[in-house]
């Protein structure tokens, strides 16, 4: 190993996930260095969401390991992974429906906090996250009354409230208008930093191209290409997978 490559933040080794006889992920291995903006693409049903379910702990994986900051987290429950610094949004938003936007974030701040901070401090953090996300005016609105784009932003805000080192966004732009897509994309770009690594799942290719340092393409549970955005786009198998053969 050359000394320039930093130790990977996330290391997935030969991960396989079966549903009954169906293989949703087939021997997937990948490493993601800290600070990377990682794009994950693939046709419908190729296993993208399944992969992040395995990373965030929603699914148990039988063979395969997930290492996060050199710690084996394969057997950890989801909330422990969240506390280690893995946060995610959901493809179909899952807000806490009986709560306001502010309370949604407070759940994450209350439970995922790494150290004990005062309630006042947590409220400040919450407001600053909401402001950053452009949701400050919605703080006291019920989560059920948000528009689609606001819901997506709230999911990202709630994820950010857990102080993640790795943020996974599952199709946060699906179904949005093109100006809204740009809005969310700018947001994600602004969140990415040396301390926050982002995995972005997206079908909108322009967004993926603009966002990603590196792109991986899944098809039927296997990695068919990984590399710079332009390399992956030019890849024959990726094009076939997307055109459908």
């Amino acid at each position: 190993m050359s000394s320039e490559t930093p130790a990977p933040l996330l290391r997935i080794a030969s991960l396989t996930k079966r549903f009954g006889g169906f293989i949703a992920l087939d021997n997937v291995s990948v490493e993601i260095p800290p600070g990377e903006r990682f794009g994950l693409i693939g046709p419908n049903g190729s296993g993208k969401t399944t992969l992040i379910n395995c990373i965030s702990g929603a699914f148990r994986t039988e063979p395969g390991t997930v290492l996060f900051r050199d710690e084996d987290i394969t057997a950890l429950q989801p909330h422990l992974r969240t506390r280690r610094g893995i946060a995610r949004s959901f493809q179909i938003p899952r807000p806490f429906r009986s709560m306001t936007v502010a309370e949604n974030l407070m759940v994450a701040l209350d439970f995922a906090a790494h150290e004990h901070v005062s309630v006042a401090k947590r409220r400040d953090t919450m407001m600053s996250i909401l402001t950053q996300m452009g949701l400050a005016s919605k703080a006291n609105v019920s989560a059920t009354q948000l528009s689609q784009v606001e819901l997506r932003k709230m999911e990202l805000a709630r994820a950010m409230a857990t102080h993640p080192k790795l943020l996974i966004s599952d199709e946060a732009m699906a179904g949005l208008s093109s100006s809204e897509v740009d809005e969310v994309l700018d947001l994600l770009m602004s969140l990415a930093s040396h301390d926050i690594t982002i995995i972005m799942i997206e079908h909108i290719m322009q967004a993926v191209m603009r966002f990603s340092d590196r792109v991986m393409c899944l098809d039927a549970g296997r990695i068919i290409a990984i590399g710079t955005p332009s390399e992956v786009m030019a890849n024959q198998r990726v094009q076939e997978a997307y055109l459908g053969t």
């Binding site: 909330h79 969240t82 899952r94 807000p95 806490f96 009986s98 709560m99 209350d110 439970f111």
Partner: peptide, 25 residues
Amino acid sequence: SWIGRGLQALKDDELAAECSGVPTL
């Protein structure tokens, strides 16, 4: 208390609660 907030969260959505750091079980 925080217990109530956690219970409310898991009542709304257990997976989302877990992924927000709530030890649901």
